[in-house]
Design a protein around this nucleic acid. Structure first.
Length: 306
DNA sequence: ATCCAGGATATCT
DNA sequence: AGATATCATGGA
């Protein structure tokens, strides 16, 4: 399959999009990115304005276009964000990032696991999880694993889950099992969450009380539940915002970020609220550009994807 | 050795 | 409401 990206609204930089820390399971070998979409093992590569896609089993063009959010008019989104002159500095070095439309269950699990971890570790743990509880997919010389279904996690033994070596072992194994159960029972209904307004959907996710706080909720909302106004805040975003928008941020918060003291819940609300207010309905897009820009600046993206 | 990474939560005051 | 302790991996 080929997708031609010959108009600005369809602009894309596959490398930046795959490596900017929103997804964790894609790997790059040569110029091909290899990953899974549903139960298909997929590889894609970009040459200038042409995207080439191959898969182990047939997948539809609309499935790929949806995943890459090619339905978003990127030139229009950036036109809105670039009304802020400061943001231009960011897009001088980072271009073509798209927020991906992830599967909500995979996204939820990924960000529950992500707590207090760096990206290589998140990748390792997720791979452990998929190898143990997903389905093996063999495709010529490639081997991959589909993401475990909620049912498979629901039925998993706690001891087997902990073998995935989560950051917070047994505690997170329990959280995943509880979440899987709620999804299986229909208590968590991702289609409902997609239809709710941002604030309501976020409150619903956080009220479940199984490892979803402010940050995880915002990531899941942005990356899988159509809330492009969500503005997740981690240490990198805090540093980027303090560096670029210092005058908008309370001095004591600036000092705490600069001294690398832990972010309090109020700090989170302050920074996330600033993001949504300042960048508007596409704050989540701005967030991804800021995040990747700051990590490149601090030299933290050195090839973690082999 | 110490510090740090896409934090959340229970338990204090 | 706000501060604090706890959870407990693995790389630099």
């Amino acid at each position: 399959m080929r997708i031609v990206l010959d108009i600005p609204s369809k602009a894309l930089d596959l490398d930046h999009t795959m490596s900017c820390g929103q997804v964790f399971r894609w790997t790059k070998s040569g110029d091909w990115w290899l990953g899974t979409l549903g139960k298909a093992l997929v590889r894609m590569r970009q040459k200038e304005l042409c995207l080439e896609i191959q898969s182990s089993t047939p997948i539809s063009r609309s499935m790929v276009e949806s995943y890459l959010r090619l339905d978003d008019d990127l030139s229009q989104i950036l036109r809105e964000l670039l009304k802020d002159r400061t943001f231009r500095r960011v897009t001088e070095s980072v271009q073509g990032i798209r927020v991906l439309r992830q599967d909500p269950w995979e996204c939820l699990v990924s960000y529950i696991i992500s707590r207090n971890c760096n990206i290589p570790m998140i990748r390792r743990v997720l791979n452990n999880l998929c190898q143990r509880f997903g389905e093996e997919i063999v495709w010529s010389n490639h081997v991959g694993y589909s993401f475990p279904t909620p049912e498979s996690i629901c039925e998993a033994e706690l001891l087997d889950l902990t073998k995935c070596r989560f950051r917070y072992g047994k505690r997170q194994a329990l959280e995943l099992k509880e979440m899987a159960k709620l999804v299986c029972e229909g208590v968590i209904d991702f289609d409902m969450l997609k239809m709710m307004p941002y604030v309501e959907a976020k409150a619903t996710l956080m009220s479940l009380d199984h490892g979803v706080g402010n940050k995880v909720a915002d990531c899941v909302l942005l990356f899988s539940l159509e809330k492009l106004e969500a503005f997740p805040v981690d240490v990198w975003i805090a540093r980027a915002v303090v560096q670029l928008y210092r005058s908008h941020i309370r001095p004591d918060l600036v000092r705490r970020v600069n001294t690398k003291s832990p972010l309090t819940p109020q700090d989170y609300r302050g920074l996330s609220h600033f993001g949504r207010l300042h960048f508007g309905r596409y704050a989540g897009y701005a967030q991804e550009y800021l995040y990747h820009w700051k990590r490149i600046q601090e030299n933290r993206c050195a090839s973690e994807f082999a």
